[in-house]
Design a protein around this nucleic acid. Structure first.
Length: 1126
RNA sequence: GCCGCGGUGGUGAAAUUGGCAAACACGCUAGCUUCAGAAGCUAGUCCUCGCAAGGGGUUGGGAGUUCAAGUCUCCCCCGCGGCACCA
């Protein structure tokens, strides 16, 4: 009896494979197609768990299979080795994070190799390798140079414990993903990547990908695109004044440039006087010359508001310096430092800025200064705005430019700073005519603006108090959906609804989010939240939609291509005279559940029709009171009774009865409906059609938030919501898209990461480290605790921080933040194609030979973050011409989760952690691999508990296979039912479909057959071993050599099957009577259906006696069904 | 609330895509083997009525389409995951 000594077998073959370089992948191989199989590289936490086995050993099955099938398979591995745990361990144990990480990697390598994976270790990639992160830095700089990376003062999620900034994705339920500490909001200068530029492409490019639906959906969901309209509401009240405006354009512009003509028109529309001017020498502007010109040609008085764009702002300041008194100065993207990214600009404008401003004088000559910088301005750094704000004590209004540097034709934020206008975002422009108030987020810039003008708001204190309270609330408190909405009215101002022309009140409430849309909404009666808020604070509301309920499913669904017959009708919610109960009606043919209803005859009043229906259907005669419940409710459904598509226009009523006195109801009526008194709670679940639900909700005082037909909406009355939304949006505003996705904040105030390769110079601003100086290596520091003030521990390496500016050679400082580790993993799959390249991140030809990834296997936890980030990265590289494809992964799959034996997630605290090393030592790596493969389908997201008995079962199976080698005979053994050919087909098909579990079950079936037969021919044994090979590589190789082969099983070809032999000679068919299986028949394959029917009839002869066969259904080779007459 | 995934024996799960539901395993039961344990072998194991032959039922619940439904359609229930004061 052969014994199965897994320990010696595994050791032997692991060493031999490594020595022979069996798994080295060439960049191309003659006659072999390239196949790139990627699994997410691990974080070197120190110990491999069962999940790692699931992640690596199962794709290995596919890798070995593809390789045996003749593909040149790239199946690489590496380590995502930067990140917090190393640093936390370093702080705790006073060790170097690099040492900690590297020793973990060494240990885990051994573990991964023990799995018998066919990884090509010669292509290993580690993100902490300076030869790797040189290119991480290089790519970051490409983004920086192309305006995809920028620094911005951002409200960030700050973890007080880890003392670092977290990405939105790292905040779970308002807590730090890693340490569970409550996250707080903080304003900090952060590096961002402009992933929002790619929002549309990240959604649209998903369409053709061969990915599971749920992955695509969660990507779309995360980006959160919604289409709607932005609509402007002019403000009136205390804001109305006698200001006149003077618009000063910037360099290389005229009075007809940028937003100037639009702004002029908008201001004039609001009744303001506007003066524009063409300044001399705009291409090489001179501030003195232009100021002289304005003095001479323009009016400057105490009513004047000067709006200066860019260089025009400089001119404005010069005018005040000369003593001109004006009311207000608005500085849009105005330069101050004289540092510009564009050298041409620097030359002409810095000259003007060399002369210092006399801010003391300037400040005296206007009441208010407003600085409007553009955060993403590529011309004037946003920090200039910050500096001007300090010098002038100005109001600081960071704007969102439509085009950077506010160069678009329409720049709403500029208008907002000039003339009070609130822009709202809505997806439901159809309800605009019912917009009866505005709600602003507490952080809305206009609220700040209004508060800065003392006396503008009549309830300043109240507003300030409200804003304070809500800013102190944590994000979680603010987002608690259940909580009562709170808000405060802005007294002294009103907005004008552009559709109705009516003045409406303005509220501030923290249920409106400053960062989404425009931070402002108009509120109407067709939104649950707005409606509830209006009721709470007694704000008037107005319905403008008649509900439309269209039945598309069920027995009363509209039938397509049939005319729609209009019908005037009334519906009655009948209240019980003494109890809080209502009459629920079930209509019998369709089991539609609602209330009493009926058509209104000609010359009949709705109330009369109603009384008649109530008497006819329910018999009640004494009606006390009838009250109409709002406007018409339209209902489109198939009428079973009249056999036609009906468009019922219901008037809903509440009917109160005097008493329960009733007449006899006719039998015909009784047959049509059941009636029952029901409590409101019962009715909630009883009603099953939207028209009745709409009436019921009205009675309950709930908003109708669905779509409908517009009324009281001017020229749009009578349109449906879907028709009106784009029309109203376009007439009173513009159609826009909004995204939930924010730019990706990539800076981290942490040591153990890639240093951001930027140098800060007082003169030149932010300067990229030149390519020749890359990589910027992580400096050594004494301890790794964050500095605490928001600077990373790198700031402690003072010598390292001090550098010469690469541009001006003056003293400068390095950026001390490091990059988010998601940056490291956004391109590692490219590096695998050429991991040792010193000149490029990868050779273009080698990359093109492998990319895009054919199959990417990963964890469901990475569906949104990592996959989205790396897709963005790939697209950015694609736009820079650095890669061939704009999508990195052809196919992505999410793997399931392995639970502990108790069905719970494995965790140390639960004590249900399965140690794979222990199981491997006891039962062998082949057993563990094969067990995990057998546990369930690999291509579905689910979770499987680890079953110790199940593992033992697989071990038994492998032992039986080993014993089977004793049965190999050097003679022909006729196959039993072509079982081997069926197995070749099924195993191959199932591996490709990633259903390893059924592939293994087929291997088991074939072993059962062979055991029964007691012998197997040598050639058949060879085939069997090749089928087993991907699953149990060690033992298969052992048996292969045992069988006399001299070269590795993994250089053998995958066996082919004979399609003809898959078909059996005889087959058992099912014989049914009336669709129920009553017997079986063994028939020859390929006999005609008449013969098959005859065979079948024989097998159920007894049951057919005295019966008449009405019909026979014959499915060749499958079944025969005799349908009997009644 | 919205989006997605799922619900089949005691357990993990199969089911040529509408054609004999429960393959393959685990577990369990009985027997054989064994000093004993472990392992192995044989038989049984969806439920139910029946000594048996055999009958009836069954894929979360209900309705429908069909000769035939785990699979298609509709309504409802439950579980899991993600997003969420998103205008």
């Amino acid at each position: 009896m052969k014994s199965y000594d897994h320990k010696s077998i595994e050791k032997k073959w692991r060493n031999k494979w490594e020595k022979d370089g069996l798994y080295k992948t060439p960049d191309s191989a003659k006659g072999r197609e390239n196949f790139y199989l990627l699994t997410e590289f691990p974080y070197p936490s120190g110990n491999l768990h069962v999940g790692h086995w699931y992640a690596f050993a199962l794709p290995d099955i596919r890798a070995r299979f593809e390789s045996m099938r003749g593909k040149n398979v790239l199946f690489p591995i590496g380590f995502d080795a930067f990140g917090l745990p190393a640093e936390n361990a370093a702080i705790k144990n006073k060790v170097n994070p690099r040492n900690w990480t590297e020793s973990n990697i060494e240990y885990m390598k051994g573990q991964i190799k023990s799995m018998g994976t066919s990884f090509d270790w010669s292509r290993e990639v580690q993100t902490i390798d300076p030869d790797y992160y040189r290119w991480t830095q290089w790519m970051f700089l490409q983004f920086f140079k192309n305006n995809l990376a920028y620094r911005k003062d951002t409200p960030v999620n700050w973890c007080p414990k880890d003392k670092t900034v977290l990405a939105n994705e790292q905040v779970v339920d308002g807590k730090c993903e890693r340490c569970d500490t409550e996250v707080v909001q903080k304003q900090m200068l952060q590096w961002n990547l402009k992933i929002t530029n790619y929002a549309d492409r990240l959604i649209d490019d998903l369409e053709p990908l061969d990915w599971p639906k749920e992955i695509k959906d969660s990507q779309r969901n995360w980006i959160g695109r919604s289409e709607g309209a932005e609509i402007d509401f002019p403000l009136v009240g205390n804001v109305k004044d006698d200001s006149r405006f003077l618009l000063l354009h910037g360099r290389e512009s005229t009075s007809a440039g940028e937003y100037q003509p639009w702004l002029k028109a908008e201001l004039e529309k609001r009744g303001y006087e506007v003066e524009v001017v063409d300044l001399p020498n705009p291409n090489e502007p001179n501030d003195k010359e232009q100021a002289d010109y304005v003095e001479k040609h323009c009016k400057l008085d105490e009513r004047t508001v000067v709006v200066g764009h860019s260089f025009g702002g400089v001119v404005a300041l010069r005018l005040l310096e000369r003593g001109h008194k004006v009311r207000r100065v608005v500085l849009v993207s105005t330069p101050y430092s004289g540092r510009f990214l564009d050298k041409k600009v620097r030359k002409s404008v810095t000259a003007a800025l060399k002369k210092r401003f006399d801010f003391e004088t300037i400040k005296k000559n206007a009441k208010t200064f407003m600085v409007v910088p553009d955060a993403k301005d590529p011309v004037v750094p946003a920090s200039d705005g910050e500096a001007l704000r300090k010098e002038l004590g100005a109001m600081y209004m960071p704007g969102k430019a439509n085009s950077s540097h506010f160069t678009a034709d329409i720049e709403q934020d500029v208008l907002m700073m000039c003339a009070p206008t609130i822009r709202v975002f809505t997806t439901r422009a159809d309800t605009l005519y019912g917009g009866t108030y505005l709600v602003l987020a507490p952080e809305h810039p206009w609220v700040q603006l209004a508060l800065a003008h003392k006396g503008l708001l009549e309830n300043e204190d109240e507003v300030v108090r409200y804003i304070d309270t809500s800013s102190k609330k944590t994000e979680i408190e603010r987002q608690a959906v259940e909580k009562e909405k709170t808000g405060v009215k802005l007294k002294g101002v009103r907005a004008i609804n552009p559709a109705t022309g009516k003045e409406i009140p303005i509220w501030v409430a923290d249920f409106v989010i400053g960062s989404y849309g425009t931070g402002a909404v108009f509120a109407d009666a067709h939104d649950e939240r707005d409606y509830a808020f209006a009721k709470k604070y007694g704000i008037p509301f107005k319905e403008t939609l008649e509900p439309v309920a269209t039945k598309t499913t069920g027995a009363d669904a509209l039938k397509p291509n049939m005319p729609l017959i209009d019908r005037q009708a009334a519906m009655a919610i009948v209240r019980h005279p003494t109890e809080d109960k209502y009459l629920g009606v079930t209509y019998k043919p369709t089991s539609v559940k609602g209330f009493i209803s009926g058509g209104i005859e000609d010359n009949e009043k709705p109330e009369e029709a109603l009384k008649r229906e109530i008497r006819e259907e329910a018999g009640f005669t004494n009606i006390k009171n009838v009250r109409q419940l709002g406007s018409v409710i339209h209902s489109r459904f198939w009428s079973v009774k009249y056999n036609r598509n009906t468009n019922s226009h219901y008037l809903p009523f509440l009917v109160e009865l005097e008493d329960l006195a009733r007449e006899e109801v006719s039998a015909a009526e009784k047959a049509e409906h059941d009636m029952e008194w029901m409590s409101p709670t019962e009715l909630e679940t009883f009603i099953n059609r939207d028209d009745w639900r709409a009436a019921w909700n009205r009675l309950q005082g709930r908003a109708y938030a669905g779509k409908g037909i517009l009324f009281d909406s001017g020229e749009f009355s009578g349109l449906t919501s879907d028709e009106a939304i784009p029309k109203i949006g376009a007439k009173f505003g513009r159609i826009v898209k909004q995204y939930h996705l924010r730019d990706w904040i990539v800076s981290r105030q942490r040591y153990w990461g890639v240093p951001i390769p930027i140098i800060h110079c007082a003169k030149c601003g932010m300067v990229a480290v030149p390519d020749k100086d890359l990589p910027v290596k992580l400096p050594e520091v004494k301890d790794y605790l964050p500095e605490g003030s928001g600077k990373s521990p790198l700031a402690k390496a003072t010598k390292w921080v001090k550098v010469k500016c690469p541009q001006c050679k003056g003293p400068a400082e390095r950026e001390t933040d490091t990059l988010d580790t998601f940056v490291d993993s956004s391109w590692y799959f490219l590096r695998y194609s050429d991991p040792k390249n010193k000149k490029k991140f990868a050779d273009r030809k080698k990359m093109d030979a492998w990319m895009p990834v054919d199959l990417y296997s990963g964890g469901a936890e990475h569906t949104t973050m990592h996959v989205l980030y790396s897709r963005f990265w790939q697209k950015a590289l694609f736009d820079l011409g650095l890669v061939k494809d704009s999508e990195p992964y052809k196919r992505r799959m999410n793997r399931s989760l392995i639970l502990g034996p108790d069905g719970q997630k494995m965790s140390k605290s639960r004590g249900n952690v399965v140690d794979p090393d222990e199981v491997v030592a006891r039962l062998g790596a082949d057993t563990v691999r094969m067990y995990l493969a057998f546990i369930g389908p690999y291509n579905e997201v689910s979770s499987f508990p680890w079953n110790p008995d199940g593992v033992a079962g697989i071990r038994r199976f492998l032992e039986r296979v080993v014993r089977l080698s004793e049965c190999v005979v050097n003679e022909e053994v006729p196959e039993n039912e072509s079982i081997l050919h069926k197995t070749i087909k099924k195993v191959g098909d199932d591996i490709q479909a990633l259903k390893f579990n059924t592939a293994i079950s087929q291997l088991m079936i074939s072993v059962n057959h062979i055991e029964k037969r007691g012998k197997i021919a040598e050639s058949q044994w060879d085939v069997f071993l090749r089928l087993l090979a991907p699953f149990a590589p060690f033992v298969s190789e052992e048996l292969w050599y045992d069988a006399g082969h001299k070269t590795s099983l993994y250089s053998a070809e995958w066996p082919a099957y004979d399609a003809e032999r898959l078909v059996d000679e005889k087959v058992t068919i099912a014989v049914q009577i009336n669709g129920k299986t009553r017997g079986t028949a063994l028939i020859d394959v390929g006999i005609d259906s008449i013969a098959q029917e005859a065979e079948a009839q024989k097998s159920v002869q007894d049951r057919l006696i005295g019966k008449k066969i009405a019909r026979t259904v014959v499915v060749p080779g499958r079944l025969v069904n005799f349908v009997l007459e009644e």
